[in-house]
Amino acid sequence: MPLSAGSRARITLVSLAGALTLAVVAGVVFGAVRIPVEDVFGALWRALGGNGGGVGDAVIVDLRLPRVLLAALVGASLATAGVLYQALFRNALADPYILGVSSGAGLGATIALVAGGTSLLGRVVGVPLGAFVGALLTITLVVRLASRAGRLEATSLLLAGVAVSYTLAAVTSFIMVFARESMQAVVFWMMGGLTGASWPYVGMLSVMLAVGITAPLLLSRQLDLMLLGDERAGQLGLDVERFKLLALACASLMVAGAVSVSGLIGFVGLMTPHMVRLILGPNHRVLLPASALAGALVMVLSDLVARIVLAPVEIPVGIVTALAGGPFFVWLLVRKVRAR
């Protein structure tokens, strides 16, 4: 091995952070209208100084920047949650979307939206709370359904996830039919991708990501143990049930945050951890931060593609990630089947 694992990890983390910075700048610069790079920095400088600029500054500071940052936060949240699910279930095909957690969060968010109205407070507190409850209940249900006498089969986990996901999506649609008056808000949010981005969302999601990623980062050694299987982890002194509960709560929190602002976005949580693991190996101390950065990068770039390919028309960012991620999922599946 030409590089030690430590220096390889450092190089990867630094490169990812650099690439993410560049992508964020590019995300602000490109769009329906191209903004010169110097204007971007000028506007930021003025905004930080507290002097409100003109309309041009407003586009940058109030529209583009929060949107790009939100994309980064959504990507980081989904990828981190993906790492956690993949470790807890020892299944490289697990991610929030496939396990049905995203749909569950979506249903929770929809109920909160219909019940609680569309005030800013509702959107920033009520909806994420509903999404969190929905996500937690869903993962509990999916694991229950997939377990046979205490054993969790990889295939039945995915099947249960997909089945639950479809059912919950149907319930969401059903609610939308009944709650006609809030339907527009729900549809807008479900399809919306990142169009509704604003600073309060950035703040909310930052908090949820920070809370959700801290415990897993601190307990990365225990996450490594989980990869040996529940029974072995228990033999090595891990309180498996408690740890799982904590890690699932963290993952659900991050998924809830991401779903609350951007609806259902698939495959980011699947692809990114997998690719990072190929480069860095399974050690969670580096896998977690690297996946968060990579997820942010993937999401910012996907959003950029979504905005410029058909500009001025914008396509939902979920379509971009699904177009890239669907084939990736198939590739993983085929490889797994062939490996047998």
Binding site: A5, R90, D224, L227, G229, R232, G281, P282, N283
Partner: peptide
């Protein structure tokens, strides 16, 4: 024992 992950 099973080892599906690439720990050293």
């Amino acid at each position: 024992p099973t080892a599906t992950f690439a720990f050293t």
